[in-house]
Design a protein around this nucleic acid. Structure first.
Lengths: 340, 340
DNA sequence: ATGAAAGCGCTAACAA
DNA sequence: TTGTTAGCGCTTTCAT
């Protein structure tokens, strides 16, 4: 067995099959355009040589990479993992690959991450959220690159936003919190200035409070990283204040779970001493003791629909503008009545 | 502004900069090989045109894609997410991208997943585990594709295995379980036949028990999916048996956490009524109540070292064969003394 | 339905 | 140090 044999090319396949390069190419790309006999000869040669197409050459010649890029703020949150998963499945079924990248919430790196992804070659881009820099949108427009935004529909009139209204979702759970009797509510979330999800969630809660003549003390707006650890820190900071809230609304379940843990570390009982509310609906929240009250986001569906919409865009199929998807209010143990 | 302008090519850059195509290429790829003046002219032209290289063309001409493929059994386990994260960071720093794919434990799909990844174009492949089909290894060999195996060092003499000895890790925690006084131990893990991690973990526990003249009843070997849900099912099945164990060792933390949850649902106290032991050391385990006793795997380090090793392989740098990395025995609340 | 041939945008000899 | 040029492996007209 020759150790110097190169990887077989389509020309090798064509030669072995006794057909032209063009026919071999068509047999693999548009099998309906060749005679069954030709198709079979080519397939036999492919199998015999163990031929695998060269995506780079294909992309260069056809100007399509059959790859979709996806930019996430982080992959360290199971809620995002779920959406990439269904996205991946949907695209794979149509012969597309998903190229995932993340900027770990360094939003200023987003442009560079997108450029690197563009360089790698993608036919379309899926991003999380509607808040992106002007440079990002300018780049996508200049490249005429189809894109789909996910997670939020607030604050954007772009027709391809697959997500929920974070404002409405937060508003809905905010009402439940007030209904339980809470008058002293704190918010621990992310920086709302360049993140429409953080903004929508905060404003939704505020609106629900305002509806009842309530507001949040300025010092009870706490910002913390989107992680278990961030939630622990946020909880601790709030609990060290002279005036303490009876309920804390976190921007994500990750933070809220950290909050529950930290409360326990401080010897507190949830919800007896303090209620804790999350946002996302990750499986881990249900497993906690107490189980986490939160808002469920259809992450799986978001991934699937975003991928489908992207495929439609690439095929030039008309698709109606998106409408907000359904969120779910998950009333669980960590939300209770305030003390006294 | 013309709406028909194509994406600029390197030829456009060269023309605008007043240099040859070759110089422009070198300015971007090997800047040290061009005069500073040339470099600057090219950079200016790049900026002015908003030029982004075409990775496909680059790959085709240079026969290098600067992309590393990574095949995971699933991305639905935070332990894997951590390793891809550090892998990504390490590669990105060296100008490489990571192309991640998973087969969701459908091990028979692995070959197809690898073929699709190969087609997309990669310079090297990183896989989880040492158990792969002969076809997989034959394909990698035929393609002369450098590869690194991760997670396990057991059952393989391939020099590029970045991981721990699952057997030893399980053996170590097995001893702790016996030391607590357990004589009735059950095992709920994955199918050991084509997964050396499941096999090593099971055998390690068995060895620790055997050392003390103990064994596992045949009906106490339970297989369940690697998920919270799988752990719940596994626990329930074991608990419905006429004879019940005093300790259950799960193959992954995901399952163990599901087990703790299910125990609670059944009105049991952990570890008073039953001890539960996991494997992986994910953050969620520590947040549970009771906190999960488990074995910590250096997932982050595995990702980093695997990526580094891959880069060395690509550069032709000599690297010594791997040695097993350190695991950590995490004795926590869910492992206690057996009742009575 | 098939074959021939012209690129796709870039890199890497090779010459100068 | 720079310019010139021949491909890289494939798709896609255009003829036939």
């Amino acid at each position: 067995m020759s150790e110097t044999k190169r990887r077989p090319t389509l020309a090798d396949v064509a030669r072995l099959a006794g057909v032209s390069l063009g026919s071999a190419s068509r047999a693999l790309s548009v099998p309906t355009q060749v005679k069954p006999a030709t198709l079979e000869k080519v397939q036999r040669a492919v199998a015999q040589l163990g031929y695998i197409r060269d995506g780079s050459a294909r992309a260069l010649a056809s100007r399509r990479t059959r790859t979709i890029g996806a930019i996430y703020p982080t992959l360290n949150n199971p809620i995002f993992a779920h959406s990439t998963h269904s996205m991946q499945q949907t695209l794979w079924g149509q012969g597309y690959q998903l190229l995932i990248a993340s900027h770990e919430y360094h939003i200023d790196d987003e442009l560079a991450v997108i450029q690197a992804t563009l360089e790698r070659g993608i036919d379309g881009l899926i991003m999380v959220g509607t808040d992106h820099s002007e440079e990002v949108f300018a780049l996508l427009h200049r490249w005429r690159l189809p894109y789909v935004l996910t997670w939020s529909t607030d604050d954007s009139n772009y027709p391809h936003c697959v997500g929920i209204s974070n404002f409405q979702a937060a508003f809905d759970i905010g009402r439940e919190i007030v209904a339980k009797g809470h008058r002293h509510v704190a918010i621990c979330g992310g920086d709302p200035s360049r993140n429409e999800r953080a903004r929508g969630r905060r404003n939704g809660i505020l609106a629900a409070l305002a509806e009842n003549g309530l507001s949040v003390r300025p010092e009870w707006f706490v910002e913390a990283p989107f992680s278990y650890q961030g939630g622990r820190e946020g909880f601790r900071r709030l609990w060290e204040m002279p005036e303490r809230p009876t309920a804390i609304v976190f921007g994500t379940d990750l933070q809220a779970i950290g909050g529950i843990y930290e409360a326990r570390q401080l010897g507190l009982r949830v919800p007896r001493d303090v209620s804790i509310i999350g946002f996302d609906g990750i499986e881990e929240g249900e497993l906690m003791q107490p189980s986490l009250a939160t808002v469920g986001i259809p992450a799986h569906e978001i991934g699937r629909l975003a991928a489908q919409r992207m495929l439609s865009l690439l095929e030039g199929v008309e698709v109606p503008a998106c409408t907000p998807m359904e969120h779910t209010i998950l009333l669980r143990e960590s939300l209770g009545k305030p003390k006294r």
